[in-house]
Each structure stands twice: as C-alpha cells, then as structure tokens.
C-alpha cells in the first residue's frame, strides 16, 4: 500500500430510534488505496462507538456493507476511497434507500428476503438441503447449472440490496418485488418453475419495472437484474401468446 495520505471528510448519516436524522462529520487521514468501509470502521473504532453499520467479509461476498457513497449505491468493502473522492474531499455516507432504517447506516432488509422466499429462492436453506453439504444433497429447487455442473444459484447475487436502493420506483411501490427477486425468478425460468408466473406476472412484479436500469449499474456481482427483468417479461409474454394459441 502506498504511503500517500489524504484528508477526507466523512459526512455520516446518523439516526437513532424515533429521533430526527442528521449528518455528522468526521475528518480522517486515510490512504487513498483504502476502502470506504475502512474509514467507517475507523470512525467506529476511534471516534464514536455508537455508530451502527453492518459488515462481515470485507471481500464482496456477504453483501452486508452496502451503503450510499456520495449518493450512489456501493458495496463499501470494494469501493476504494481514491475512486470516489479526492484529497481534502468529502464522502457522504448514507444508508440504502427504500428500506426502513434501523439505526444509522443499517437498514431492515426484510423486504428483499421476503421477496426471495416468494420466488422460492430463500437466503437461508435448511442445513439438510444445503448444496455444499455433500453427495446427493440438492438445493430445494432445480436451478440451472453451468457447463461444469456447478449450481448457478441467483447468478452470484449476494443479496446486498443495492439494486432495490437504486431502483427509482421501489421507493413508491413498497410491494414491488424488486430487481434481485425478479432476477432470482428469471434464473429459475418460468418453463422450469411455472408456479412463479403468478408471482411475477402482476403489477408489483415484472410490470412495475420502468426500465431505468439503475439496478444493473450498481450491482457489484454483475447479476444484470435489468436484463433479467426484461427477459422475464419476454418469458411472460411468450407464455401469454402460447396460451392465446391454445398452448400450455
């Protein structure tokens, strides 16, 4: 890591209980090669132990550290400070949008997990059904496999919620399933999982999307939810057309 040091103002969203939200500024000396989560952790460690934020893996696997950095959804463990501000600059750190704020930078992601359950792609599997537990044990549903016969569960979706936060209509449609959930349905495919048609072919399913493609732009795992939603629409339309002509 370089010896270069930057002075950066972290302007952090704070909210406790029913209190009004406000912003608190912490001025830190950081290496520009550090990641945003490093700065947030340092604030907690050396400036204010009451700061609430979520993190775990530090390598973009757990999806816990999603926040808005200068107004854009980022997974803060892979967002280098150099890429989002400059020496003497500001980093505005806010919680994800479109989820209830529990405290400071932590949001209640139930909306996402409930949606995943609706499309039979639960975030947590019973241990007996976990696909990594050995021979003969399968996921709860048949999901596509790549050429190497590896399960492609949710095409690497880490359920970070950035897509729901970035979606401009998710804030005015609380029942909207949202990009990650629709992507999970698309991956299974309506042909393989026809029961999902009723879940996604509705006003708060594929038809609520207004094609802003912000979900795809912020996704840290290249799931491309925007494309997947459009493909799911295509599948729904194909099913309808087949039904018009008497098909199944």
């Amino acid at each position: 890591m370089s010896e270069e040091k930057w002075t950066v103002n972290f302007v952090v969203y704070r909210k406790k209980g029913e209190g009004a939200p406000h912003y608190q500024t912490f001025t830190l000396e950081v290496s520009p090669e550090e990641y945003v989560i490093d700065g947030v952790e340092r604030i907690w460690a050396f400036h204010d132990r009451s700061l609430v934020f979520a993190h775990a893996c530090h390598h973009s696997t757990c999806g816990a550290c999603g926040m808005r950095v200068n107004g854009v959804e980022k997974l803060t463990c892979i967002t280098r400070i150099r890429d989002v501000t400059s020496n003497g600059g500001t980093l505005r750190i806010e919680p994800l949008r479109n989820f209830p704020v529990i405290s400071d930078l932590v949001v209640d992601m139930s909306r996402l997990y409930v949606g995943m359950d609706k499309v039979h792609a639960p975030a947590v599997h019973p241990l007996s059904m976990a696909p990594l537990e050995g021979e003969g044990i399968k996921p709860p549903r048949e999901v596509p496999m790549d050429d190497g016969k590896e399960y492609l569960r949710l095409a690497d979706c880490i359920e970070c919620g950035l897509c729901i936060s970035a979606c401009p209509v998710a804030g005015t449609a609380e029942e909207y399933l949202g990009p990650a959930v629709l992507a999970a349905a698309q991956l299974q495919g309506l042909g393989r999982a026809p029961d999902l048609t009723a879940v996604v072919d509705c006003v708060d399913g594929v038809w609520r999307c207004h094609s802003a493609y912000e979900c795809t732009a912020v996704c840290p795992s290249s799931v491309d939810p925007g494309w997947r939603i459009m493909d799911l629409r295509r599948q729904v339309l194909a099913q309808r057309i087949r039904r018009w002509f008497g098909g199944a």
Binding site: N70, G171, A217
Partner: peptide
Amino acid sequence: ENPTKKPNTRGILDWFDPRGRRVGGWGF
C-alpha cells in the same frame, strides 16, 4: 428493534433526483 418500519425514501421526489443516475436513470 426497528422503530419505524417506514422505508427510507422521499417518495416521488426520488423519481426526479438526478444525483448518481446513469443513462437509463436519466431516460426514466
């Protein structure tokens, strides 16, 4: 405990918030 359960959103104002939007967002 989540005290409010109210989503962190400004409603329709967020439709028109251009900050951080990319090409598709501007189209929207």
